[in-house]
């Protein structure tokens, strides 16, 4: 069994995680230019050190309640295939190392919308962390970001 590292972030009081190897960097929220005629969860594009990077509102994507940006708001720049994409999260400040055997299948109590994007859950001390499947998030519908 191999240990894997995950970035843990918070969305609406819940903890989520994605593998560290998919994360390019974590940025503070900065000015985002709205792109018209795109899906509502597409927040827009931002200038990430000279590279135009699309930004996704992860709360909206997972159909959670909207929340105003604050000091803790972060943009996780995830790297999938050739494109970097920013994911807005409430806060992100934790990296955990988990033995693969500690990853449990998704409990049935989860919302069906969310189920599609979840690969499993991790019990870490007293908190439950949901493992997100970025491939699903990026590929299932993101290819149709445009309305």
């Amino acid at each position: 069994m191999e240990n894997q590292k995950f970035i843990v972030f918070k969305l609406d009081q819940e903890f989520y995680a994605i593998p560290v190897r998919l994360v390019q960097s974590i940025e503070r929220i900065q000015s985002i230019t709205r792109v018209p005629n795109t899906k509502s969860f597409v927040k827009g594009i931002m200038n990430l050190r000279g590279i135009i990077t699309p930004v996704i509102d992860l709360r909206e994507r997972l159909k959670l309640n909207a929340k105003a940006e604050d000091d803790h708001t972060r943009v996780i720049i995830a790297h999938l295939q050739d494109d970097s994409t920013g994911l807005i999260v409430d806060e992100a400040n934790d990296v955990i190392e988990i033995d693969e055997s500690n990853i449990k299948p998704t409990p049935e109590t989860f919302d069906q919308v969310q189920m599609d994007y979840i690969t499993g859950v991790i019990k870490d001390e007293d908190r439950l962390i949901v493992l997100l499947d970025l491939n699903q998030i990026f590929n299932s519908e993101l290819v149709q970001l445009v309305e």
């Binding site: 792109v35 018209p36 005629n37 795109t38 597409v42 594009i45 590279i51 135009i52 990077t53 699309p54 295939q81 050739d82 494109d83 994409t85 990026f138 993101l142 290819v143 970001l145 445009v146 309305e147």
Partner: peptide, 13 residues
């Protein structure tokens, strides 16, 4: 600059 693969077909942009 282009908008990347995901956003390439935005109408009017």
């Amino acid at each position: 600059k282009n908008l990347g693969t995901y956003l390439k077909d935005v109408f009017g942009i």
